[in-house]
């Protein structure tokens, strides 16, 4: 590019050389100072980062002692930053348990109670009212989402000529989001739940591009939740308050479901459209639905093998 002829007279006289060197050093110093000034905001950020946090290993590589220390550190940090005493646990998948979820499209009325319950249960950012569930209003006669909308706002639902399809993480058995993650920050657990290690995710959002169900959410900034609204029953892989700049997603409320309880969205559903349970238990409700109802999965053609099912009936 700007290749200029060097002035031959300035070369290579000793004094000229020295003056030039002095100028260069001066210039370099100024440049470095300007660079430091430009990056100054980062100092505020590094104050926020702890060395322990920076060096923390992947969830799967933490020994029980290390994991316990991490949980205590996060509890202390939540108290310091959000002013609320919380319990963050690590809940392992249960042997002999593989979760499945089914949703009855015939009775869902699109009231968004599930989305709100998710928002509260999972300590989502209050400003953006995030939720892992997006309820689509579909048009009768069409199963094309092109003719649907998530931002409907009626006096009363169901609206005439519409039906409703809540969409959340389908906990695919062949999950594109897990495959594309370059750092294994997201993986599938033994009970079928796809989880995210919020402390390992680098925030590249490749999973968000890969997910065919719009199930993943990014923390564009640090979540804001008033202390009194925080759900103190938290776990490492689920609803603890997420850091800024990482991915999150529905985890079937594993802090509840791994203790035998129903997910928050199910309990909130006023029409009983949701059925949750253990696919490995032949007597479970979910098994009965899968065996007796006209069940289908979303975007089956993509080969993602969801374990979230829809049915009519």
């Amino acid at each position: 590019m700007a290749e200029e002829p060097t002035d031959p007279t300035s070369e290579p006289a000793k004094e000229g050389f020295d003056r030039r060197t002095a100028l260069k050093v001066g210039g370099a110093t100024l440049g470095a100072a300007a660079f430091a000034r430009a990056l100054a905001p980062l100092t505020e950020w590094t104050e926020d980062l702890s060395v322990d946090g920076f060096l923390q290993k992947h969830y799967k590589e933490l020994t029980p002692e290390e994991l316990s220390a991490v949980l205590r550190r996060h509890e202390a940090e939540t108290e310091r930053r959000y002013g609320r005493e919380v319990t963050i646990r690590d809940l392992r998948p249960q042997e002999g348990v593989s979760f499945g979820y089914a949703l009855n499209l015939s009775v869902c009325i699109g009231c968004r109670r599930c989305a709100e319950a998710c928002h509260i249960e999972n300590n989502h950012d209050r400003r953006t009212q995030t939720s892992y569930i997006r309820v689509l209003e579909m048009t009768q006669g069409s199963f094309d989402m092109e003719h649907g909308t998530a931002v409907y706002d009626h006096e009363a639902v169901p609206a005439p000529g519409k039906y409703y399809m809540p969409v959340q993480c389908q906990q695919c058995d062949n999950p594109p989001c897990v495959h594309v993650c370059p750092v294994e920050a997201t993986w599938k657990e033994e009970d079928g739940i796809v989880v995210v290690d919020y402390d390992w995710c680098i925030g590249c959002r490749y999973c968000e591009a890969a997910c065919p169900y719009h199930a993943r959410r990014f923390n564009w900034e640090r979540p804001v939740v008033p202390a009194e609204e925080i759900n103190p029953n938290q776990s490492y892989l689920s609803n603890r308050i997420r850091p800024q700049g990482v991915m999150e997603k529905c985890h079937f409320c594993l802090h509840r479901t791994r203790e035998g309880r129903a997910p928050a969205c199910l309990e909130a559903c006023p029409t009983g459209a949701r059925v949750f349970g253990n696919l490995l238990d032949p007597n479970s409700d979910i098994r009965w639905v899968l065996e007796n109802k006209r069940v289908f999965v979303l975007k089956e053609d993509l080969g993602t093998r969801p374990r979230f099912f829809y049915y009519f009936g």
């Binding site: 905001p41 980062l42 950020w45 564009w220 700049g245």
Partner: peptide, 16 residues
């Protein structure tokens, strides 16, 4: 430098 400064700000305040 303008870019570096904007990036530093983005890192601190978030991708918002």
């Amino acid at each position: 430098l303008v870019g570096a400064n904007a990036w530093a700000q983005q890192t601190v305040d978030g991708m918002a």
